[in-house]
């Protein structure tokens, strides 16, 4: 098996959790990452994968007419 440095895995595990898990609160709280505000106006948006984050970051860098946000 190709091995990865344990620190690299710890970072990956933390990114998984801090970016895609953790408490999400309804109402006035906003998850504001990479310049995109996900305002919770009665909707609970779940970001469930690093793929989603990659898409978010790509969207943030895309021209306006290509902008869209997709959540799993």
């Amino acid at each position: 098996m190709p091995s990865r440095h344990s620190g690299e895995i710890a970072v990956a595990d933390l990114l998984d959790r801090a970016l895609h898990k953790g408490l999400v609160i309804w109402g006035e709280a906003t998850i504001s990452v990479a310049g995109i505000d996900l305002v919770y106006l009665g909707l609970k948006l779940l970001l469930t994968s690093t793929d989603t984050m990659n898409r978010m970051r790509a969207t943030a860098n895309a021209p306006p007419d290509e902008s869209h946000l997709q959540a799993d």
């Binding site: 801090a18 408490l23 006035e28 709280a29 906003t30 504001s32």
Partner: peptide, 17 residues
Amino acid sequence: PLRFGTVVADAAAGLRL
């Protein structure tokens, strides 16, 4: 733990949550 990147407008908003 809250999800990374969670912000509110001010302390009053946090208290309301």
